[in-house]
Nucleic acid binder design. Structure first.
Lengths: 206, 206
DNA sequence: TATATAAGCGGAGAATTCTCCGCATGTCAA
DNA sequence: TTGACATGCGGAGAATTCTCCGCTTATATA
């Protein structure tokens, strides 16, 4: 017997890999044709010529499927953000935060449907999820760092905790909030950026 | 033919009124026993000894039912708020805003489940509602007035629009955000109040 | 190649939301 | 009292989400 079995990894079975590709392709087709929230998991399974069980084993809900579809683009987004932060290292944190917001809002606009799909996660038990997804946490970490930097050199008397403020800003950036501002209040993307900046960044430091 | 028929109102039929009471009672019983989000519309209909169709004709979804159940308490809430604002008319708006927040948070805590139920509205067609409910709009109006007052006597350079800021604050007060802060971040109600105050009110005017 | 076995498949079906429409009945006018 | 008819009832059933579990099959070993 070999001690310490080789990593308990097992390559994905060939048919499984093929099915995954079928699912992804089917989802892309249907999403493009009907819009993300008009497409049901059943439809996707049927289009991919799979049983519902097969689809659900891989993705526990539509949210996870959307996340998989958008993952590559999210990686690019974070790449863009990091590049931007690198280039503007010498600028004040408030300005860098504004830049990050701008980049994110552009991304949000481009991938609105899928991002909304991602956020609609419902934990499998039936009650709405309280926990946020990986995108949320990564952005949160980034924002906290910028806020901390602002606080260090800041003029504010009693700023809110950076963690709290980052949560509030991300809540304000959620699909729901963004769509409401855009469609009901009628703000343009630029206007939303400006208002977010004034609410969550400015008039405090500097 | 009579000109201008008498108001096109027709009193609610007696059996209908009785059924409504049955629904309300059944919902209260089940909500107390199992918790709002564990109870299905079907269960409520069964408990009230009605067909699902009857229940759905009166309340298009659970959100509307919750709203009806909570309506009286909401009226009391707004009564409390107005009384508070009246009593403290001479205080600066920022302080009054804080008071309003405190009152609302107490209400939120007491009626968490039902309020969450109210917010979970889904427009009947299937896509998530973008529009907010009546409670939202009433609170929004109130907050806008306070913000406007702050802006009038304010020291801020370029405050965000009052409408926008009120939207952001209300978003931060949503069930989702509140529960996240309380259960995941571990903030007490007092701490949340303090953080909200610092984020959305203070460090700006005065 | 043969075979053990873990990985994966698929569809029946439970639970839920919500609609449709034929039938019953309360209410009003005569 | 007696219809007429608008109002309301109820349940069948469509659509959707999600689970369960027996059967199949790809893959690793011998």
């Amino acid at each position: 017997m070999s001690e310490a079995e080789i990593p308990p990894f097992r390559a994905e079975r060939r048919d499984a890999a093929e099915n995954r590709q079928r699912i992804l392709n089917a989802a892309i087709r249907l999403f493009e044709q009907y819009g993300v929230d008009q497409v049901s998991m059943n439809q996707i399974a049927a289009e991919a010529q799979l049983g519902p069980g097969t689809l659900y084993r891989r993705y526990r809900n539509k949210s996870e499927l959307c996340l998989d579809l958008i993952k590559d683009h999210v990686d690019l987004l974070f790449g863009d953000i990091e590049a931007y932060l690198e280039e503007n290292r010498v600028e004040p944190p408030s300005l860098r935060l504004r830049g990050v917001l701008r980049i994110f809002l552009a991304f949000r606009e481009k991938k609105l449907q899928l991002l909304t799909g991602v956020e609609e996660s419902v934990s499998s038990n039936g009650s709405k999820t309280r926990t946020r997804g990986p995108i949320y946490h990564e952005l949160h970490k980034l924002l906290v760092e910028l806020y901390e930097e602002m606080a260090a050199s800041g003029v504010e008397r009693t700023p809110p905790d950076s963690v709290f403020r980052a949560d509030m800003l991300l809540t304000a950036l959620s699909s729901d909030s963004y769509i409401f501002q855009r469609d009901v209040r009628g703000y343009s993307r630029e206007a939303i950026l400006e208002q977010l900046y004034r609410t969550f960044v400015t008039a405090k430091d500097e």
